[in-house]
Nucleic acid binder design. Structure first.
Lengths: 334, 334
DNA sequence: TTGAAAGCGATACCAA
DNA sequence: TTGGTATCGCTTTCAA
């Protein structure tokens, strides 16, 4: 492999000049720049990442911690991952993928070894042990999610509290007064996953304010799990007219079960789903949904990380306002 | 951050001794080792990855190129990614995640900059332009998939030709003589994705050998797409008794459509799916399936990469024999 | 506008 | 069993 000295020699300049041509940190005459660039192309020169990291204390790599084997919707995870990788490339950064399983150790390993310039952490729990660990690192971190005590860590997420609230308001606005909530899997609540509790509290607050009757149950994302959940909800709240579904995996089985039992959507029962747009559109009924803006959140997470790195940005928490898109699964009651 | 000299000073030894304690590349007396390890723990010392890469020409990072936004089943991709990341950690390696969109440029960037020790590439096409590019790199590469001319690149995959063959044989063994194939999305065939053509050729060969009537159609993974596909297949092949489905996303809509049109599985129509075990089990009918061993393939890809790195292993192509698991969607005809 | 040279923090060879 | 030191390839300060 060609080194910077090889390029310098070929261009008839010093190594530092080549470095400055590459970084643009000082003015270079047009002629010199041209010769250096020609030499670079000629030799297929790529700066050595390790050497660069050693000399500059910058790696141009971000760590992304993703939940790679849990009860979170896989397509949603992939949307976040894709958004982060794509956005990172726009800032000339690559992405090192860590699994959530590795816990605190993974963070400390890649940060301690100076493998990354910053970290982005998904699937944050209310009392996440990784939060204090992240605070100790010298690299900036951005959480996708919102722990109970973020301290001065930067967070970005959909405002799930407002989302829960708006789902109920939307249905109430259409005349519904008895509403069931098909929640995430029980494991999600047990782990204290932040978005689940926030959504639930917004949902409950709205129901209380508006004087609606509600029933809430966690839901295993399988056919039998959805059946159980539905039975429990209906036992607790007979004659409900609408369901809010905060569980992407449950949507297809739910629609199938309803059809099997002869209930039409939305004529007999209305549904508001919380899911990304494409999931809402991929089902047999085009679902009215509160959008999970995974792409936007992932992109913002990268932009905020880069802002922290430049020193241009202060830590903050950014919660995106919900958007409810009316499609074909929500009916107005007389 | 503490450096190796800090540790050396604290332990009263030289920097090289600390390095050897860490690498185990030469014998160290018990006492010295203990003092060095104490100092390491005390100072929370982590070797600097960049410095290490520069001195040793090893990064302990693998690149993984994944199709992050195409018509390949997202859960399957995630299974590969998870398997690769998990296996890599067992070899003390981290994973840099690249998107397929970046094409050849991404490979050349991370390899040229010596950011990675090896590369694993998913979603390989028959005449993939990345294949010649990979051959030029000095780092070893492993393909998940099988291009037409792999040259001396290492490949690992399910033997899709045999899988297509066995799906037909399985059905024929149950008395079926008119079989439809619900294929992947049209884009998959158009791109010349390797596994799709291989599966199809095995499928066709078996049908020809056994004298069966077949109809084959690509399938958009949506409700309307599955409906179209099914209509086309039935127009071409009335009275078919079985379907082979090589398209994970089409499975749920297909089952729903069949039910809607009053055909029971397997009483009226048999199905053999090509998908990972958990997908086959997550649907309302437990599907007889040819397993896609994503975890095994991903793990093997990492092991083969490490073998190439040690110099212990020669380039080879490894195709895993198919396994058909009989569940509840395949009936024996009288 | 450019060059020279001092690090950055490890590894591994050569000695002892 | 251990230490000294050249070296990896780049960035950046100091000088010209």
């Amino acid at each position: 492999m060609a080194t910077i000295s090889d390029v310098a020699r070929a261009a008839g300049v010093s190594a530092s000049t080549v470095s400055y041509v590459l970084s643009g940190r000082r003015p270079i005459s047009a002629g010199t720049r041209a010769r250096v660039e020609a030499a670079i192309a000629e030799l297929h020169y790529h700066p050595h990442a390790g050497a660069r990291a050693l000399a500059s204390s910058r790696t141009n790599v971000l760590a992304l911690v993703a939940p790679l084997r849990v009860d979170v919707s896989v397509p949603v995870i992939m949307q976040f991952v894709t958004a982060v990788v794509t956005a990172a490339r726009r800032f000339s950064h690559d992405v090192l993928l860590l699994t959530k399983d590795e816990g605190t150790a993974g963070l400390e390993r890649v940060a301690g070894a100076a493998m990354v310039d910053g970290l982005i952490v998904m699937d944050v729990e209310r009392d996440d042990i990784r939060v204090p660990a992240l605070r100790r690192l010298k690299q900036p971190a951005v959480l996708i999610g919102l722990p109970d005590r973020p301290g001065d860590l930067t967070c970005v997420d959909l405002d799930f509290t407002a989302t829960g609230y708006e789902c109920v308001r939307h249905l109430a606005g259409h005349g519904h007064r008895r509403i069931g909530l098909v929640g995430p899997g029980p494991g999600v609540y047990q782990r204290g996953t932040s978005y689940a509790t926030r959504f639930l509290s917004g949902f409950s607050d709205a129901a209380a304010e508006l004087g609606l009757a509600v029933a809430v149950h966690a839901c295993e994302p399988s056919f039998s799990g959805v059946g159980d959940c539905l039975r429990r909800i209906e036992a607790e709240l007979p004659d409900l007219s609408a369901l809010v579904v905060h569980n992407e995996e449950a949507l297809a089985p739910l629609l199938e079960l309803l059809r099997g039992s002869g209930r039409r959507v939305p004529e007999d029962i209305s549904i508001v789903a919380v899911c990304p747009r494409d999931v809402a559109l991929a089902l047999p009924v085009r679902l009215t949904s509160a959008d999970i803006p995974a792409h936007e959140v992932g992109t913002l997470a990268v932009e905020m990380t880069m802002g922290l790195l430049d020193g241009g940005r202060r830590p903050e928490t950014r919660l995106l306002a919900p958007t409810i898109i009316d499609r074909d699964s929500c009916r107005t009651l007389p």
